[in-house]
């Protein structure tokens, strides 16, 4: 295998706050290939957004300690100067945020905001940039793009705003697109439209996409590979099929069991994960999931609370858990029976 397009190695992002050191990301590694979508799943505070802000270099450097390696197409990003990053952002890599209304400027027309990025990176004239903005709006499926280009974000509906954001992110044909919960605030029918749009655009341009979400259903729809995060660490990774069909970590299993489905039995109560996500100020020792894990006592010697399980990845598949494969086979057996009919 050649070198991956984006490679993140042992990333650590720590913030020092008044209350102490927050270890938002604590040793995370992954690769993304061109034309592929990596889905990152995790709950609030699992470090998924922090990871992606560090790829884009959007953390305040004075208050953030970052360690590890982020290499995009042969270029190291963590140590890169602000000027280098500025040239890359919006150009080679760009981002779609969750809340489109909050991420668009209310004082500028949508067209101006799309054109701005284009002009900055290509040095195009105002007229060229405007034409490009219209073309982008058309490409993301906004009706009457030549009229809409002069409208303000408040005149757009939620789904259209998200489309405009996508247009802005794609205006320079980026090779890496980071989508941070881009559909969470949208209705399901609009969510379906946006996901189809992203898939179409990816096919057309071969963009590498990192798709952050808390919704395993969305992952099943859009991702090729999946990375499950918990408490700033990766607990499980693999292809979408591997992770969703045969989850290998109690947390992933717990997430799936706590979600009702459209065709499951309604008489069986859901199986929630007890407790709540950990505080990253004072995270649990050992495996960060052990206080909520149903199987922690199955591991002898209290290993779960003392030692951090290693994530051994073989051909892109692996999970960080102290349970042995045989134990998992026994303990997870019910899963297949209850979930897939």
């Amino acid at each position: 295998m050649s070198t991956p397009f984006l490679s993140v190695r042992d990333l650590r992002v720590h913030f020092s706050t008044e209350d102490g050191l927050v270890k938002a990301v604590d040793g995370l590694s992954f690769d993304v290939e061109k034309g592929k979508t990596l889905g990152i799943v995790g709950e609030s505070g699992s470090g998924k957004s922090v990871t992606n802000l560090s790829i884009l270099g959007l953390h305040n450097r004075e208050r953030t300690t970052m360690d590890g390696e982020i290499i995009l197409d042969g270029q190291e990003l963590l140590t890169a100067s602000e000027r280098t990053l500025e040239k890359l952002r919006g150009n080679k890599m760009s981002m779609i945020f969750q809340d489109a209304l909050a991420s668009l400027s209310p004082y500028h027309t949508v067209g101006v905001q799309i054109a701005e990025t284009y002009r900055k990176h290509t040095g195009a004239s105002k007229r060229e940039a405007r034409a490009r903005a219209v073309e982008m709006l058309r490409r993301v499926g906004i009706p009457q793009p030549d009229v809409r280009v002069d409208e303000y974000p408040h005149q757009f509906s939620g789904g259209m705003r998200q489309r405009a954001m996508i247009a802005m992110a794609l205006v320079c044909d980026p090779e890496l697109l980071i989508a941070d919960e881009p559909t969470t605030a949208l209705d399901v029918t609009v969510q379906a439209q946006i996901m189809d749009l992203l898939k179409d655009l990816q096919q057309e341009f071969g963009t590498a996409i990192i798709f952050i979400t808390h919704d395993l259903g969305v992952i099943a729809d859009i991702a090729d590979d999946v990375l499950v995060m918990y408490g700033g660490r990766c607990v499980e990774r693999g292809t979408k099929k591997e992770v969703l069909r045969s989850p290998d970590h109690p947390y992933t299993l717990g997430l799936m069991n706590s979600m009702p489905t459209l065709n499951g039995s309604v008489d069986v109560p859901l199986t929630p994960i007890p407790g709540s996500p950990p505080s990253l100020l004072n995270p649990p020792s050992g495996c960060r999931f052990h206080p909520r894990c149903a199987f922690a006592e199955k591991v002898s010697g209290g290993l779960c609370s003392s030692d951090r399980p290693t994530l051994e990845v073989v051909e892109g598949r692996g999970s960080a858990c102290h349970l042995t494969q045989e134990q998992k086979q026994d303990l997870f057996a019910d899963f297949a029976a209850t979930r897939h009919n």
């Binding site: 939620g158 399901v188 439209q193 395993l216 969305v218 979408k240 069909r245 979930r339 897939h340």
Partner: peptide
């Protein structure tokens, strides 16, 4: 029917699930 078909489900089907795409907004 369209609403139900748009719900993403955390299952991997052998054949990709066909969805009813509703155009536009409410």
């Amino acid at each position: 029917r369209a609403l139900l078909s748009a719900v993403p489900e955390a299952t991997v089907d052998e054949e990709p699930r066909e969805r009813i795409r509703l155009a536009g907004d409410v």
